[in-house]
Computed example of a mutant assay.
Amino acid sequence: MDMDVNMDDEPTRRDVRNYPPRQDSVPKARRRAAWLAVAWGWPELAADAALLTSELTTNALVHGSLPDRQLRVELRLTGAVLRIEVTDPKGERLPEPREAADDEQCGRGLQIVSALADRWGASDRIVGKTIWAELPLRPPV
Protein backbone atom coordinates (compact mmCIF):
# COMPACT_ATOMS: atom_id res chain seq x y z
CA MET A 1 0.00 0.00 0.00
CA ASP A 2 1.37 3.37 -1.01
CA MET A 3 1.10 5.82 1.90
CA ASP A 4 2.57 8.73 -0.07
CA VAL A 5 0.02 11.28 -1.16
CA ASN A 6 1.07 13.11 -4.30
CA MET A 7 -1.32 15.94 -5.00
CA ASP A 8 1.18 18.26 -6.68
CA ASP A 9 -1.27 19.01 -9.47
CA GLU A 10 -4.17 21.25 -8.57
CA PRO A 11 -7.45 19.61 -9.50
CA THR A 12 -9.05 20.88 -12.68
CA ARG A 13 -12.32 19.19 -11.69
CA ARG A 14 -13.55 18.15 -8.26
CA ASP A 15 -16.73 16.53 -6.98
CA VAL A 16 -17.62 15.73 -3.36
CA ARG A 17 -20.69 13.82 -2.22
CA ASN A 18 -21.68 12.56 1.21
CA TYR A 19 -23.55 9.29 1.49
CA PRO A 20 -25.35 7.68 4.42
CA PRO A 21 -23.78 4.46 5.72
CA ARG A 22 -26.26 2.23 3.86
CA GLN A 23 -25.87 -0.42 1.17
CA ASP A 24 -27.73 1.68 -1.41
CA SER A 25 -24.97 4.30 -1.19
CA VAL A 26 -22.51 2.01 -2.99
CA PRO A 27 -24.33 1.86 -6.36
CA LYS A 28 -25.12 5.57 -6.13
CA ALA A 29 -21.43 6.43 -5.65
CA ARG A 30 -20.42 3.97 -8.38
CA ARG A 31 -22.85 5.48 -10.92
CA ARG A 32 -21.73 9.01 -10.05
CA ALA A 33 -18.06 8.11 -10.56
CA ALA A 34 -18.77 6.61 -13.98
CA TRP A 35 -20.88 9.61 -14.97
CA LEU A 36 -18.17 12.06 -13.85
CA ALA A 37 -15.43 10.24 -15.78
CA VAL A 38 -17.51 10.58 -18.94
CA ALA A 39 -18.60 14.16 -18.20
CA TRP A 40 -14.99 15.18 -17.55
CA GLY A 41 -13.86 13.80 -20.91
CA TRP A 42 -12.40 10.44 -19.90
CA PRO A 43 -15.04 7.86 -20.90
CA GLU A 44 -12.39 5.13 -21.17
CA LEU A 45 -11.88 5.45 -17.38
CA ALA A 46 -15.59 5.19 -16.51
CA ALA A 47 -15.68 1.44 -15.84
CA ASP A 48 -12.47 1.42 -13.75
CA ALA A 49 -13.53 4.55 -11.84
CA ALA A 50 -16.90 2.94 -11.10
CA LEU A 51 -15.32 -0.30 -9.89
CA LEU A 52 -12.70 1.47 -7.73
CA THR A 53 -15.38 3.69 -6.21
CA SER A 54 -17.54 0.68 -5.52
CA GLU A 55 -14.74 -1.25 -3.81
CA LEU A 56 -13.54 1.69 -1.71
CA THR A 57 -17.08 2.67 -0.71
CA THR A 58 -17.95 -0.92 0.19
CA ASN A 59 -14.83 -1.18 2.36
CA ALA A 60 -15.72 2.08 4.09
CA LEU A 61 -19.27 0.88 4.67
CA VAL A 62 -18.23 -2.51 6.04
CA HIS A 63 -15.12 -1.54 8.01
CA GLY A 64 -15.35 2.18 8.74
CA SER A 65 -18.92 3.32 9.07
CA LEU A 66 -20.89 4.51 12.06
CA PRO A 67 -24.70 4.75 12.01
CA ASP A 68 -24.87 8.52 12.41
CA ARG A 69 -21.86 9.55 10.28
CA GLN A 70 -21.74 10.04 6.53
CA LEU A 71 -19.20 8.55 4.12
CA ARG A 72 -17.56 11.06 1.80
CA VAL A 73 -16.66 10.21 -1.79
CA GLU A 74 -14.49 12.70 -3.63
CA LEU A 75 -13.23 12.57 -7.20
CA ARG A 76 -10.50 14.88 -8.46
CA LEU A 77 -9.22 15.27 -11.95
CA THR A 78 -5.74 16.72 -12.33
CA GLY A 79 -3.47 16.95 -15.32
CA ALA A 80 -2.14 13.45 -14.63
CA VAL A 81 -4.71 11.37 -12.72
CA LEU A 82 -8.30 10.75 -11.78
CA ARG A 83 -8.16 10.38 -8.01
CA ILE A 84 -10.92 8.70 -6.03
CA GLU A 85 -11.05 9.24 -2.27
CA VAL A 86 -13.43 7.66 0.22
CA THR A 87 -13.44 8.96 3.77
CA ASP A 88 -15.04 7.18 6.71
CA PRO A 89 -15.23 8.07 10.42
CA LYS A 90 -13.25 5.11 11.82
CA GLY A 91 -9.50 5.54 11.66
CA GLU A 92 -8.45 2.82 14.09
CA ARG A 93 -7.50 0.36 11.37
CA LEU A 94 -6.00 1.04 7.98
CA PRO A 95 -6.82 -1.41 5.20
CA GLU A 96 -4.46 -4.22 4.31
CA PRO A 97 -4.83 -6.53 1.32
CA ARG A 98 -5.30 -10.17 2.19
CA GLU A 99 -5.57 -13.45 0.37
CA ALA A 100 -9.16 -14.66 0.30
CA ALA A 101 -9.86 -18.38 0.20
CA ASP A 102 -11.47 -19.71 -2.96
CA ASP A 103 -14.78 -20.30 -1.16
CA GLU A 104 -14.92 -16.83 0.47
CA GLN A 105 -17.34 -14.30 -0.98
CA CYS A 106 -15.48 -11.30 0.47
CA GLY A 107 -11.89 -10.21 0.92
CA ARG A 108 -10.76 -9.37 -2.61
CA GLY A 109 -11.59 -5.66 -2.75
CA LEU A 110 -8.10 -4.33 -2.17
CA GLN A 111 -6.67 -6.83 -4.65
CA ILE A 112 -9.03 -5.34 -7.23
CA VAL A 113 -7.98 -1.83 -6.22
CA SER A 114 -4.30 -2.79 -6.53
CA ALA A 115 -4.87 -4.32 -9.96
CA LEU A 116 -6.77 -1.34 -11.38
CA ALA A 117 -5.16 1.67 -9.74
CA ASP A 118 -1.79 3.09 -10.70
CA ARG A 119 -1.34 3.97 -7.02
CA TRP A 120 -3.48 3.70 -3.91
CA GLY A 121 -3.05 4.35 -0.23
CA ALA A 122 -4.47 5.62 3.02
CA SER A 123 -4.33 8.93 4.81
CA ASP A 124 -5.05 9.41 8.49
CA ARG A 125 -7.40 12.22 9.43
CA ILE A 126 -8.09 13.84 12.78
CA VAL A 127 -11.27 11.76 12.78
CA GLY A 128 -11.36 8.76 10.51
CA LYS A 129 -9.33 7.90 7.44
CA THR A 130 -9.30 8.42 3.70
CA ILE A 131 -8.53 5.61 1.29
CA TRP A 132 -7.60 6.79 -2.18
CA ALA A 133 -6.79 5.35 -5.58
CA GLU A 134 -5.46 6.97 -8.73
CA LEU A 135 -6.11 6.16 -12.37
CA PRO A 136 -3.54 7.67 -14.75
CA LEU A 137 -4.82 9.85 -17.57
CA ARG A 138 -3.50 8.36 -20.76
CA PRO A 139 -4.79 9.57 -24.09
CA PRO A 140 -6.56 6.87 -26.11
CA VAL A 141 -4.29 5.05 -28.54
Rank of each mutant, 00 (worst) to 15 (best):
M1N: 13
D4N: 06
D4S: 08
D8C: 09
R13C: 12
R13V: 08
R14K: 13
D15S: 15
Y19L: 11
P20M: 04
P21S: 11
R22W: 06
Q23D: 14
K28C: 08
K28E: 14
R30E: 15
A33V: 06
A33S: 10
W35H: 11
W35Y: 12
W35V: 05
W35G: 06
V38P: 01
G41N: 12
W42G: 00
P43A: 07
P43N: 09
A46L: 07
A47D: 09
A49T: 05
A50Y: 03
A50N: 04
L51I: 15
L52Y: 00
L52G: 00
T57M: 15
T58R: 08
N59S: 10
N59K: 07
V62P: 01
H63C: 05
G64V: 05
L66Y: 03
L66D: 02
R69G: 00
R69L: 03
R69T: 02
Q70M: 13
L71E: 00
V73S: 03
V73I: 08
L77G: 00
L77R: 02
G79P: 09
V81A: 14
R83N: 03
T87F: 00
D88L: 04
P89V: 08
R93S: 11
E96M: 09
R98S: 07
D102N: 13
D103K: 09
E104I: 01
C106V: 12
G107K: 09
G109Y: 01
I112H: 05
A115T: 10
A117M: 01
D118C: 04
W120L: 05
A122F: 03
S123T: 09
R125N: 10
R125G: 01
V127T: 15
W132C: 02
A133F: 00
L137I: 10
L137F: 00
L137P: 01
R138I: 13
V141H: 11
